[in-house]
Nucleic acid binder design. Sequence first.
DNA 1: TTGTATGCGTTATCAT
DNA 2: ATGATAACGCATACAA
Lengths: 350, 350
Amino acid sequence: MSEVLRSAVNRSTTLEDVARVAGVSRATVSRVINGIRNVDPAIQESVRLAIASTGYVPNGAARSLVTRRAGSLALVVSGSGAVADGPAGGEVFTDPFFGRVVSGVFTALRPQGLHPVLMLADAPEAREQALAYLRQGNADGAMVVSTHADDPMPALLLEAGVPAVLFGRPDRPLPISCVDLANRDGGRLAADHLHARGCRRVVTIAGPSGVRAARDRLAGFHDAMARHGLPYLPHAEADFTQAGGERAITRLLIEHPDTDGVFAANDLMAQGALAVLRDHGRRVPEDVAVVGFDDSSAATAGRPLLTTVRQPVEEMAAEMTRILLDHIARPERGATSVIFEPSLVVRQSA
Amino acid sequence: MSEVLRSAVNRSTTLEDVARVAGVSRATVSRVINGIRNVDPAIQESVRLAIASTGYVPNGAARSLVTRRAGSLALVVSGSGAVADGPAGGEVFTDPFFGRVVSGVFTALRPQGLHPVLMLADAPEAREQALAYLRQGNADGAMVVSTHADDPMPALLLEAGVPAVLFGRPDRPLPISCVDLANRDGGRLAADHLHARGCRRVVTIAGPSGVRAARDRLAGFHDAMARHGLPYLPHAEADFTQAGGERAITRLLIEHPDTDGVFAANDLMAQGALAVLRDHGRRVPEDVAVVGFDDSSAATAGRPLLTTVRQPVEEMAAEMTRILLDHIARPERGATSVIFEPSLVVRQSA
DNA sequence: TTGTATGCGTTATCAT
DNA sequence: ATGATAACGCATACAA
């Protein structure tokens, strides 16, 4: 097939075509496109013209084949596959937490012109799929949000040599970078506040025991309460969802009708507590004070406004992204960690 | 550099390496990997062995360079760039609507082993970036969720020849496939319900007038109300956020203190209305009945539970994804549209 | 400053 | 059934 025919058929325009039109070599066109200096301004101009007239767009695959850069980062929502822990498959994305992470990632990615590719690794099969994708170099690195502490994903990524950063420290220390919140401190803030308010019959709604952040929040809360002279507090475990929170508080109220304070390990469960308390005719905060965790949109969605421990998710996600970008640019550097401090946001519920 | 040295340095193992180890040609290894028949079982086995022993993983870029398939689809959150309309930048992802879309997309994508890459095209610059990414073939097609009716993205994608499917019909008809809800019917459902309940002094909280879905919901509501003998209803425009809903209902209550019914164009704004009504000491539904739209998680987040018009977002997003996959597989087929029917979900608020 | 030539790792078309 | 060999479209080391 002649050159003319070939280009007439279907083939999209290539560097070669542009070079021919501009009367220069492929290399020169490439240089112009990639903004490399040492190009005669006049030629530069004629190349730009040729690009415009041909409607040329570089081919991403060919480019990343030679540069060994995919131009995208993976955002992996990872779990153990155990259905009992945390929100199930579809619900993960409905959690305000997820939206905040995405938001923070975009903040850091936008200046670089990169885009996140979303991967859900909540079952062995899905995990293998995600891992294969990453190993093939379809993304330059991975940001991992684990919904479960014994998530095998971090170790697998490490082993595969994929640059990665975690949101939340793993259960067992790994030489992987991560961002996290001082969750124990957060629990302490909530305890001090409820105690100062005069609450003495406090119950807690814990997150999944398989989630480290959930355990740490509860531990910090219990520690502080013990220091205030309250060594034992009833608690129920839930799954970080509102419905789970509703079930937990219902159980707790039956067993401990005289409850005057509630600490929930996230806002969604606190929201559930508020709803049930209202159904039971308990006034918040007069009869029962409630403190949540996260300061997500759920905290201000209803009435009373929720007093909560703030976790700066967006900032944390942005930092996670920056760390990953840095690791990709300078692979020789070792793992780092950035721990954020929580703060108490006092509103109406406590 | 000698072959030995080269492979000793850093280079990841390639098809060539596997072929050498297995004592066959590259082509044969490729056949085994891609599951093409006509391969001697014995050789097949030795190739698998070689793959395992070398830890070979195919290179995604090289593969898609020749197959012309990226193996990923774009999920574009697109807007006009006008700040006044709809939730601002970061808030887009916190809206439960977004989470439901992602959820639905994953449902349809999972069986195919594909992953969505997220793109935010809310400003001219970001739009160009996203467009460039797509034109370069970094994704095989795009799913577009527009936050604004005069969004230029659909037309641009059409012009660029990128396979695309829209969530929500564009303002001016385009030969692009889309999924949508019969929004007018939804508005009608809400109106009929409020009227049947006896509400006669009804106000509406509209979404951004630049969003077609928002206009259609309101139009359907007003039409039905007019048929019930109520030709005029006060309304305020808001931005689909809870805060916006709060401001809108506050204004409406001042001007129309005798209001006995509220229709909000989405649940978030309805949630805001509930909060303010509560602040003002109005009982819901006894004094004022409230109907929302979407049946998102916000509908059951607080008390009273929200009566709302259900939009099956997850199903719609999954269908959008399936249509896109079909377009990619069979480009010759023309554009189609699938319109879903809304339904009324009666809870406590009306 | 510009052009030439080579390689990136795979799939696909041929022969055999 | 298998093996050469030619694309795929780009970046870059090197030569000029």
